[in-house]
């Protein structure tokens, strides 16, 4: 049974929304801290490094989970360009989530800065102390941040487009999950909720092929 489920794995959904909040917070913290010479600069800078490393750790846990549990199939009637955009943007989102903390970390190392997470916890340098490299990485950190924000906006708009206009179940696959089809008989393991992180990804009770979802429930 190699069929992907209808929805993203519940644990993946939890991590998705947790990281969505963290990544958005980081982008706001990042552009906010560089915008000011006020005391907020130091407060935000102190948050920026540990949250960035937390995102790096989460994405390193999330990527294998995503590769193992797979993704639900896109609607069969989705135009090929939109399929390409969906898959390409997911690759870029993962790449950005992993690259931004690594660039930030390498950038501080290249600038000769201690990579301080908390008082007393300093990470080792992952790049040589080199100001050309620092200048390059520092610039990349800003440019990729702005592109990352634009990508997140496009991702959000696309998700809402699926949920509000196409009503094709794609948005639900990363939110509440697909409700059991009314035509399906009640299942023995129906007490396992969609958000139960221990629910098997490959639920044998699910239908063999994607079934059209009722529009009323969207």
């Amino acid at each position: 049974m190699n069929r992907p489920p209808h929805d993203f794995h519940p644990l993946l959904r939890v991590v998705h929304w947790l990281m969505a909040a963290m990544v958005l917070a980081m982008l706001f913290i990042g552009v906010g801290m560089v915008s000011t010479t006020g005391p907020a600069y130091l407060t935000l800078l102190e948050l920026h490094r540990p949250v960035g490393i937390a995102i790096l750790i989460l994405v390193l846990l999330r990527l294998p989970l995503r590769l193992v549990t797979g993704s639900p199939p896109l609607p069969l009637d989705l135009p090929p360009m939109q399929v390409l955009a969906a898959k390409g943007s997911h690759v870029l989102l993962y790449a950005s989530m992993a690259a931004m903390p690594l660039i930030g970390w390498a950038m501080l190392a290249a600038g000769g800065y201690p990579v301080k997470l908390f008082s007393g916890l300093i990470l080792p340098p992952i790049a040589p102390h080199d100001l050309w490299l620092y200048a390059w990485l520092r610039q990349a950190h800003t440019v990729i941040a702005v592109l990352f924000f634009a990508l997140i906006l496009a991702h959000l708009c696309a998700a809402l487009f699926h949920g509000l206009i196409r009503k094709d179940g794609v948005l639900r696959s990363m939110t509440v999950g697909t409700p059991p089809s009314p035509s399906e008989p009640p299942q023995a393991d129906s007490e396992i909720s969609d958000f139960d992180v221990f629910a098997p990804a490959d639920d044998p009770g699910a239908p063999e092929f994607p079934v059209p979802q009722p529009k009323a429930g969207e």
């Binding site: 982008l27 706001f28 552009v31 915008s35 906006l153 959000l156 708009c157 809402l160 487009f161 206009i165």
Partner: peptide
């Protein structure tokens, strides 16, 4: 209608971002 909702939600992110960035 839904397009306006989508645009509105996007604006709710973009405007605070522009403000945060100064």
């Amino acid at each position: 209608g839904p397009l306006l909702v989508i645009g509105g939600i996007a604006a709710l992110l973009v405007l605070p971002f522009l403000w945060a960035a100064g």
